[in-house]
Every structure is written in structure tokens, then in C-alpha cells.
């Protein structure tokens, strides 16, 4: 088995709002990331994808708080070390993060090269501007990014170019793991493909070893991820190999998601799309039983009262009281969950 670069166990993170509410946005999440892999995280808006990413990075700034669980990066549980050590030894070097909408958050008054200087000077003491420039130019060249971008300001770059630049900057220290949160959602398809190619190139060239890719675009995820994890209302409801989760989902929610995929392929036109009515539960309440309960066509009384644990079948896992066979049978009967 390949080396585990990242190990997350029973992680729980909460937002504490000024109304004294506690929103559990990441609830008992566990997963591993192995060397060479790209793990995709899917799920609808507000299910906790970005919060999970921030938690794994140890970015606990109010109102976000760590509650419990373990995040092992290269053998160190980062939830147990002081923030200074995390910042100096782990962030940027072992693990790097491209936040959602990062490309629109670049400091507009600094040239790209200055942004790179900031990153490198913080981590490599005594490094000179000249050395930084050389490293930056080499990296841009290897990644097919025009070198003159280094001297430009963020507003002088197109969306796609900005996003590629952000990726190049955040991986300049060769972190083992890269977490990319919706890096292509604001881009058109052509720029999107170029960005994805760049990310894959980073792994191929060994600049990074593994990646977590967050998006709600399932066809996109299928094209880049080895494994897919589906989140719903702060929990993981299914995970497995990309191929299996996309073509043969187990959980009723994943099944609904996969049935709403739209691609420009023959046979799609005229296909009835699955619409899951209603909305996910509010995470500020203490939730009991299955969180998908009131949107699920197969819900029974026990779903609401019993605690639903993950079930493991071969290399896959899912969170539902029903057995795989029972679910499969219902999907085959055409009794798709919550069809309109």
C-alpha cells in the first residue's frame, strides 16, 4: 500500500456565531490520502467542503473552532501543535491550500513576483531576491506560464491566467499535499481544462505528491479524481473509487446527484433529471438520525431515530441503514429517490 500522506480521523469543527449558535459544519469526518492520489470532494453548497479544507490546514480562526479529532500530516497531529510550529514547519511545505475564490483575493497593489517573495522569505530564511526570482522563473517556465507574468499586477491577468498563477505560487515550496477548493468554478471550460492540466502536471513532475480537489462539478471530478468522497450536511455519506461512485452510487443522495449530471452527449437531451426537493437541514440544530431523512424516498422510521454509522463494503463506504442490495433493487425498480 502506498504511503499515507494525510490521515484525518473523526474530525469535528464548529462555527460559533454571535447569536451563540454552534454550527457543526464538519462532523466526524475521517479519510486518508495516499501518495500519488487525487481525492475529490463533492457535495452541495453549504455541506462543509471548504470548512473541511480549512480544518485540515489547521486554519482555525474565529468564528471557526476545532472541536475534536485528529489530522495527521507526515506523522504529526497538527491539531495538537502550537500555531507557530504549524505555520513554520507544516503550512506551505507539507501541505498547501488554494482557497475558494483565491484568484480574486490577490493583493492588487503587488506584482506577482512580490507575492512569491512574501511566500518564500517567510519559509526560507536568508534567501535573496535574486534566488527567488530564479526559482520563480524556472517554475513558471516548466509549467508553461509566460515569465513576464511575474512582473505584472493581478488585474492585468485574465481569470484563467490568474488562477494558474495562484497555483504556481502556492506550490512553489513543493508541498507534499495540495488542497484546491473549487479552483476552476469561475472559469470557462477552456481555461478550466488548462488549469486542470497544470495541476496534473504538478503531480507528474513530482512538485506535489497528492491532491484534494473540491468541486460540485461531478463530470469534472470524474475526469481528475482517483477517489471521490460525497459530503452531505457536514458528514461524509459515501466514498469510493471515482468510477464506482459516479456510475454505481450507493447512497440515495449520491444516487440523486449522479442522476442530475448533464453532459453534452447523445442521450442526455430528453432525459428526465432527478430533482431532490427541499433543502439540507440547518447545521445549527442538533441533528439526530439520517440527515437526508426528509428528502429521501426510502426513508423509514428507524432512519430518524437510530444513529447511522458508516458501512464498509469492499473498498467502499456509505452511511445508510439499508443494505447495498436493498438500495440497488430500489434504484433498478426505477424508484429513483425523489424524482419529479
Amino acid at each position: 500500500m502506498a504511503e499515507k500522506l494525510l490521515e484525518v480521523k473523526n474530525l469535528k469543527s464548529v462555527y460559533k456565531t454571535r447569536f451563540n449558535e454552534k454550527i457543526t459544519a464538519v462532523d466526524d469526518v475521517s479519510f486518508d490520502l495516499e501518495d500519488g492520489k487525487c481525492l475529490g470532494i463533492a457535495g452541495e453548497s453549504g455541506c462543509g467542503k471548504s470548512t473541511l479544507a480549512m480544518s485540515v490546514m489547521g486554519y482555525y480562526y474565529p468564528p471557526l473552532f476545532y472541536e475534536s479529532g485528529i489530522v495527521n500530516i507526515s506523522g504529526i497531529d497538527i491539531t495538537k501543535i502550537p500555531y507557530n510550529q504549524l505555520r513554520k514547519e507544516i503550512l506551505g511545505k507539507e501541505i498547501a491550500y488554494i482557497p475558494q475564490a483565491a484568484m480574486n483575493a490577490l493583493n492588487p497593489t503587488q506584482r506577482i513576483i512580490n507575492l512569491i517573495e512574501d511566500v518564500m522569505e517567510e519559509h526560507i530564511s536568508g534567501i535573496t531576491k535574486k534566488e527567488i526570482r530564479k526559482i520563480a522563473e524556472d517554475r513558471f517556465e516548466t509549467l508553461n506560464l509566460p515569465k513576464d507574468v511575474l512582473q505584472r499586477y493581478p488585474i492585468e491577468l485574465s481569470g484563467g491566467m490568474k488562477q494558474r498563477t495562484v497555483i504556481a505560487i502556492s506550490t512553489i515550496l513543493n508541498p507534499k499535499i495540495l488542497i484546491a477548493d473549487e479552483p476552476t468554478s469561475a472559469l470557462d471550460v477552456t481555461s478550466q481544462k488548462i488549469v486542470i492540466k497544470l495541476l496534473k502536471d504538478l503531480i507528474k513532475r513530482g512538485f506535489i505528491k497528492a491532491m484534494v480537489f473540491i468541486t460540485h462539478e461531478l463530470p469534472l471530478l470524474y475526469n481528475i479524481a482517483d477517489d471521490i468522497m460525497v459530503m452531505y450536511a457536514g458528514e461524509i455519506v459515501e466514498s469510493g473509487e471515482a468510477e464506482e461512485v459516479i456510475f454505481d452510487p450507493i447512497h440515495p443522495y449520491s444516487n440523486g446527484l449522479m442522476n442530475s449530471i448533464i453532459v453534452p452527449e447523445k442521450g442526455i437531451k430528453g432525459k428526465k433529471l432527478t430533482v431532490i426537493p427541499g433543502a439540507p437541514p440547518n447545521l445549527k440544530y442538533k441533528l439526530e438520525g439520517c440527515r437526508f431523512f426528509d428528502r429521501c424516498l426510502f426513508a423509514k422510521d428507524e432512519c430518524k431515530i437510530s444513529e447511522i454509522n458508516m458501512k464498509y463494503v469492499n473498498n467502499r463506504s456509505y452511511r445508510c441503514v439499508l443494505q447495498v442490495d436493498e438500495l440497488k433493487e430500489m434504484y433498478e425498480d426505477g424508484k429513483k429517490p425523489a424524482t419529479t
Binding site: V189, T190, Q192, K193, I196, K197, K200, E217, P219, L220, Y222, N223, I224, I246, I261, V263, P264, E265, K266, K269
Partner: peptide, 29 residues
């Protein structure tokens, strides 16, 4: 749609369509 998307004539349209992630086949990256 069946003409423009399944049988595009313009290079630009073909190009746009080829960049869309699909599930019939994966991108070679």
C-alpha cells in the same frame, strides 16, 4: 442543439466541446 453540439462545423465550436469534461470518456491528461 443536435446539429451544433453533436455535429459542429466550426473549429471553435469543436474546440469548446472538446474542453467540456464528459463521463463517456476521461480526458487524457
Amino acid at each position: 442543439p443536435d446539429d451544433v453540439i453533436l455535429n459542429p462545423t466550426e473549429e471553435y465550436t469543436k474546440h469548446l466541446i472538446s474542453d467540456v469534461p464528459k463521463i463517456e470518456s476521461r480526458w487524457a491528461l
